[in-house]
Nucleic acid binder design. Structure first.
Lengths: 353, 353
DNA sequence: GGCGGAGCCGGAACCGGTTCCAGATTCCAC
DNA sequence: GTGGAATCTGGAACCGGTTCCGGCTCCGCC
């Protein structure tokens, strides 16, 4: 209803001065500013962001593209991003986009191409170079959180190191038959989060001198009574559950420890083990990664990370890229991997001899 | 970069005609339209939504306020909303807002007050009348999904009936000591989702003639060897877990069946039971509500609903309220509760005699 | 005392679309 | 053949802000 012209008239100044007074840009006498502010408050004036962005080209709005909203890690990241953005006075428009497909193309070519967002944060989605370049061309900063190859700022934990660390934890406990439940497609997409974790597992296995048995396929591994075994499944609780049922139901010497690619998978493993009458950790040690809030309840040993903090950090970088605030320093410690921490709980122990 | 004036010039028409040709409003000769479209495609023209909404007052954007993103029901709803909105060419800006507080006020008084959204969908959040009226005054349609009292269109399952149905399922199996794990604050907020489910439970218990024992507090109930018991906890897996540990660890005759206010709580109950050496369903029957995707894996009997469909439906109503599309009929069956379905799995059975 | 510059303010252009209005043409009906 | 409606198009106003430019005042300094 009320436009800035009304405010100006009421305050007895021009539109230009009213705009300057309210936005804080330019010189305005202190009592003039007060008059304008009073007038604005009196008629309940609220600036139209559309009009403002039309002329300034900035929308105070960032797009977030995210493949899942219902998996713990992603949900936490999203919440972290949302809070930080809100605090900075920004809106967040959500694009729930998974793998390639017409929906995804539409999002990138139509929705993100318009001038609605100032920047985009892509979490856990492998952008094609065309998609990344498209944003670049339009001058929209891009920040990535995990997943995919370079192009734009990139925030990530060192998933390969995490995979190695988790595996080493089991090896140090004395396990020699440790299996890895990888995320679906880990072998095919080595650069992905789960691909990296799988590689870290293989690193650790090889370093322990158990590597040769692993080289073969999972089936071959089982058949030869291998020290190590790889299986893939959805990175969810049911995914871990069914993969674990399969793994533990195999003939031959059973794995005594499992490194699951995510905590949610690990929960599924624990449940599957118990269903089969195995006791965790007596008969089977289990470690995951994420630091899921259910970890406590399941007594799960894990490599924890802080998705919420990661989301906030991504917003920090975005705002910095947009020249927001007084962030003098360019980028804090760009490239350095995000922190992780081994949290030992009840689900891992030395194997029975 | 490219503005509509450029398109018009290239096509040899006026801005007005170009606008009409591209937006489809008004009369344009068919070959003129083709020329304009070709020109637009040639220079990669993309309309500025800001300019358009400045003059039309519509933003093609709806706000979604939601208290959680990481609980299954809410995540599913959000995904459903997102897909439907995207398909209709709308953006979705997310406001992750929980209970009252400064953040919430800021969202309603600043973010939603601006002209950025055409409508808002509130899922599972109890709007104050001030908040609802504020939106009303600004002419923004409001659609609610679950939770809270009237004001604006309201979509919901019949939570009270669901609570009764779940309880009756247990009673019909022959259980006489059935406990209810309600959501935190259920007793204090009887209009809320979990408040209604609790009331449904009490209805069924009373109807079965087991009511008198329930009237007292939970503690009193336990002490008197009551037929029914009420406990509250967070509507999450750990929430159900700790509440169940407490419930099942009590002295006196143990409940033989538990109705958990949500599937996530029910999973926690199952795990707690097994941790205590109880077998489900032999020693304890468990029923939840939601239709969680993990239900299969846990073999959980539940009253299922379709949060994704509910999200899509909410979008439908919103678009209709915005006069979008050719939705001739006003509102389909407004007021009718959304569908639910009893899904019987392995977690419920008759009590041992 | 004069001059440069900073502070303050108003007029007007502008961002990029949409829509009203008016003029021109075509088409149909009487 | 003519009146009137329907179709098509262009000019111009407009949405609600921001910002450029220029004018004025006042201060400090040479």
């Amino acid at each position: 209803m009320a436009a800035i012209g009304d405010v100006a008239r009421l305050a007895g100044v021009s539109k230009a001065t009213a705009s300057r007074a309210l936005s804080g840009r330019g010189h305005v006498a202190v009592d003039t500013r007060r008059r304008v502010e009073a007038a604005a408050a009196e008629i309940g004036y609220i600036a139209s962001p559309d009009a403002a962005s039309l002329v300034t080209g900035r929308t105070k709005n960032v797009g977030v593209v995210i493949p899942f909203v219902n998996r713990w890690f992603f949900g936490e990241v999203l919440e972290g991003i949302e809070r930080a953005l809100l605090a900075a006075g920004y809106d967040l428009t959500l694009y729930n986009v998974g793998d390639t497909g017409p929906v995804r193309d539409r999002v990138f070519e139509f929705f993100l191409a318009r001038k609605r967002v100032d920047a985009v944060i892509a979490v856990g989605v492998d952008l094609t170079s065309r998609e990344a370049e498209g944003l670049e061309q339009r001058g929209k900063p891009l920040v990535r959180l995990g997943g995919g190859e370079p192009g734009g700022a990139r925030l990530s934990i060192d998933d390969r190191a995490v995979g190695a660390l988790a595996t080493e934890h089991l090896l140090h406990l004395g396990h020699t038959r440790v299996a890895h439940l990888a995320g679906a497609g880990a072998a095919a997409a080595p650069w992905s989060v789960h691909g990296q974790r799988r590689l870290g597992y293989l690193d650790a296995i090889a370093a322990a001198g158990l590597g040769d048995a692993v080289a073969g396929s999972a089936a071959a591994g089982a058949a030869s009574g291998a020290a190590a075994t790889l299986l893939e499944g959805e990175m969810t609780m049911p995914g871990g559950y069914t993969a674990a049922l399969q793994l533990l139901g195999r003939p031959g010497p059973r794995a005594t420890a499992v490194f699951a690619a995510s905590d949610e998978m690990a929960f599924g493993v624990i449940r599957a083990a118990e269903r089969l009458g195995l006791s965790v950790p007596r008969d089977l040690s289990v470690i995951g990664v994420d630091g899921h809030e259910y970890g406590e309840m399941f007594g799960l040993t894990t490599i924890s990370q802080s998705p919420g903090d990661q989301g906030r950090l991504a917003v920090d970088v975005v705002l910095r890229l947009l020249g927001e605030g007084e962030h003098a320093d360019p980028l804090p410690d760009s490239g350095a991997p995000l922190p992780t921490r081994l949290v030992v709980r009840a689900s891992t122990t030395a194997p029975e001899r």
